[in-house]
Each structure stands twice: as structure tokens, then as C-alpha cells.
Simulated scan of single mutants.
Amino acid sequence: MTTLAEAIGQTLADDGVRHAFGVVANGNVLAVAGLTRHGISYLSARHEGGAVGMADAYYRTTDEVAVCTVGAGQGLRNAATGLADAVKHRSGVLLLCGDVPGTGPRRIDVDQDGFLDSLGVPVVRLTDLATARTDILRALRLARTEQRPVALCLPQDLVTVQVTERTPADRLSRRPRRMAADPAGTAAALEALDAARRPLILGGLGAWRSGAALPLTELGDLLGALLTTSAMAAGLFAGNPWSLGVCGGFAAARAAELISRADVVLAFGASLDHWTLADGGLLAPNAVLVQVDTWPAPTTDRVDIHVTGDAAEAAAALLDGVRARPLPRHTWREEVTDRIGHLHWDPEPSQRHPRATGPTRAS
């Protein structure tokens, strides 16, 4: 038989987790030993906030979930800033933390559910030894498929208790399937492109994570569209002569002027927060804004058409649709060739959106 601490390390290692970052405390020391015993590399941090930052950065650079492990109570509270940042950036992080014993709270304990809920972090608690391995994988599935931090809470009085579940009831794929673009949303986007004369493609962090640069570039060439990115996806179209650079408060003045002339904006994997849209002052009031994202609903009321799906999958679907119709290739690129050729970084915010004077942070 295997203890719960050992089962955590074995189950995560078997399902492809390779790295963990953390601060050892009374509530997680045996779990850390279980991780390392099963081949998961562990890097110690000096502060819990730094440990979450490491796991967050690991996900952003590799697109793989890493473990961040901290103790209960004070250890978990120290992770607040890093967790909030990981939530905002939709980073898959599995937070393995100590938890209140089943016998009741101690002096050091806090309302961990309320604390994590306030940060937008869902909780999976390991209280049933008959489903422990399945619950561990359920937490990992949430972090992978929903691209968010998920807390796996380990009650201290169960750490050394033996689990009765030998194998998980639901073995997960290490790589979740990409979400296909919904047909209704794709059709609506194609209808909008039928009437477009100055299309613009905006790539966000979701587009970068899905590897959508190539299909988005092909779509732009087919439509004759200009290209731009959110701040978090800067460089997605690096070297492309039709790229306007970053969209938002730090957009170059000439780029902002061109962005404001777009009549259809296709946003792929971008949250479209007020930094990206410059508090609503960047796009033309009559521009049709199409948001492509894995979230089931638009992230802002400004969105006119919402397409649910992975950025690369949706770009491929739109490519097929454009080729099948076919839509006319627009002449906007030829009209603005001279302006794009003289684009440069402008440290002053564009006068077209004077409210956008703060730092630009978008996804």
C-alpha cells in the first residue's frame, strides 16, 4: 500500500509532471519527498510568492504544468501575489498546499477555501482515500485544460495514511485536445468579413500559446489585413512587413491611427481588456469586433461576434471558409504601404486615445 504523500508524487510523475517549485513547511514536507522520490525535479524558493512565480514562468515558456508547493496557513497566504498574477495570465499551475486537518482548524489555519476563491483559484481537496489518485488527476486536468492555477489541498492528518485506490479511474491525456472553432461563430465571422474593407488581425497570448502565428499570417495575406498583437504576445508577427506592433496604450501614434480605421477586427486569444483597447478609445465605434477564445463567453461588452475555440483551430477554419467563398482580397495594404514603412516607436501616447497613458498589460 502507498501513503497519500507517495501517491501524489507517483500519480503526477506517471502523468508527465516533471518539475516542482516550492517552500517546504510542516504541511507539505512529506509530499515534497514523494515528488522527488518519483523523479520530479524540485527547486526550492526563498519565498512562496517566488515559488508561484517560478511555476508560472515555467508554464509560460514551456506550456507544461508545473507543481508549486507551499505549507498551510501563512505559507499559502504568502503565495497570494504570485497566484493572482498567474490567474490573470491564465497559467496552468498545480498548487499543492497543506490544509486544515480533518479534526478541525488549528491556531495557524485560515479559511483556505475563501482565500483561494477570492483569487479565482478552484480547490480540489484530498479527503477521500478511495478516490485520491483520481482527485489528483482531476486537479491536474483543470490546470491543463482550463489554463489556470488549481489548488490541490492536502489535510495534514492524512499525509501518512495509506490510499485504497490503486489506479486512477480516469487516466488523462498529457496534452488536451485543442478546442475546435464553433461553426456558428465561424460563420458569423465570415459574414462580417464579407463586408470588410479594412480588416485587422489582433493576436493575443492565446494565439502565441497555440502556435497560431503561421495560420494567422496566412489569413492576413489572404484577406489583405494588417496585423497587431497584445502586449503579452509582442513579437508574434516579428519581421512581418504588415505588422503594426503592439495594440494598446503604448501603440505608436501612426499604428494607433491605422488601428482606429479598421472596420473588422479579428482578435485571437486576447482578453481585450481596457489596456489593449485603450479604455475603448482605440477602435472605431462602428468597427465589428470578433473575439476568438476558449472562454465560453465574450470578455467585454464591446465584442460583436464571439467564436469559441483554440486560436490556431479557428484561424484554420476561417482560412478554409475564406478560400471556399472566396472573399475579395482587400487593397488596404497597398493604401497604407508608405505609412507602415515609416512606423517607429513613439514614447508619447497617441492623441487618438489620450486616456491610454498607463502601462499596457493584456493577454
Rank of each mutant, 00 (worst) to 15 (best):
P199F: 07
T276G: 08
A262K: 06
V264F: 00
C247H: 09
L266G: 04
A262I: 01
G239A: 04
H274S: 11
R166M: 11
L216G: 03
A189Q: 13
L226H: 00
L272E: 00
A238V: 07
T229E: 00
M232S: 15
L172N: 03
A196Q: 03
T217P: 06
A238M: 02
R166E: 15
G203T: 02
R254E: 02
W208T: 12
L244C: 03
A256N: 05
G235V: 03
A184T: 15
F268V: 01
A207W: 04
P199L: 09
L190Y: 06
A233F: 02
G185R: 08
P215R: 05
G235P: 06
S173V: 13
P199D: 06
A234E: 07
G204W: 00
A267S: 15
L223N: 04
L222Q: 12
L193R: 12
R198T: 12
G211P: 04
T276D: 06
L227E: 05
L223P: 03
S230Y: 02
P168N: 07
A253K: 14
G204E: 00
A253G: 06
A180K: 14
L193N: 10
E191I: 11
F237C: 08
S210A: 15
A189M: 14
E218H: 10
S173K: 08
G211A: 01
L266Q: 01
L172E: 01
C247Q: 04
L216P: 07
L190M: 12
A234N: 11
P199A: 02
L216T: 02
H274I: 12
L202Y: 09
E191T: 15
A212M: 01
A251D: 01
R175M: 05
T167P: 07
